[in-house]
Design a protein around this nucleic acid. Structure first.
Lengths: 118, 118
DNA sequence: AAGATTCTGTAGAGTGTCTACTGATGACGG
DNA sequence: CCGTCATCAGTAGACACTCTACAGAATCTT
């Protein structure tokens, strides 16, 4: 069935890593909670599918930007808790500034400071 | 081989269409000029490679968001001039608002408003 | 006991950008 | 003239990442 009352937006490729790293800056959590956090914090605009989430987490772990260990979640289920590594913090800073540069650049195209209009 | 003095940023997937459509809003031009315009207007932050540009133009033409015709460029070379179609204008409006929603959503993650009221 | 919820995971399709290459034409200096 | 550079168009294939769709296991609810 189809339902997206808050009309969701698709993730642009490359932004998921940034969102995950930023989420983990607040402290270690498990994958499921990361997805919920992103959805809630973005006011339901963004939704991370599990088919994107888990491969992304494994990718980040392989690059040693995050590290993981099994624990029990609040609700008593086995869950894999991820935390930022020092390299992950650096990566986050880098991706954050890349994002800012990129969105500023797009802004320049969309609203050129040039003359325009009457 | 490393060289990017103005430290370029990679295009996020899905944004090229938006940039092309927005560029054509200022009037018809050819591919080469579109790429130059995007690079210049973004203060050299964005650079569109020809391997991305031309497939994108063909894609947009196939969807009838832009239309093309051969002409002579300012410098006397044969060039394919593209212009926005009415459907292209609608698409531009739609992609523009999607972009705004998305970048706002990312902003919410990066700089949470931090509620938790009373 | 059955079903919903939480939590993790994989396979494969689809999309779109990049690198690297080809090719044609006109302008210009030697 | 001839070579070289700039302009303009294009393709092939690699690569990366998100999505849909599916599966499995444990806990809580009814």
């Amino acid at each position: 069935m189809h339902r997206e009352p808050p009309s969701r937006v698709e993730l642009l490729q490359g932004t998921l890593d940034l969102l995950i790293l930023r989420t983990l800056l607040a402290g270690p959590t498990h994958g499921h909670a990361i997805a919920k956090h992103i959805q809630r914090t973005s006011e339901d605009l963004l939704q991370v599918e599990t088919g994107s989430l888990y491969p992304a987490l494994h990718r980040l772990e392989a690059k040693e930007w995050i590290a993981a260990s099994w624990k029990l979640s609040d609700r008593g289920k086995r869950a894999r808790y991820y935390r930022l590594t020092p390299r992950g913090r650096k990566q986050l800073a880098s991706e954050q500034s890349k994002w800012r540069a990129f969105s500023r650049a797009v802004g320049l195209i969309l609203n050129p400071v040039d003359q325009e209009g009457p």
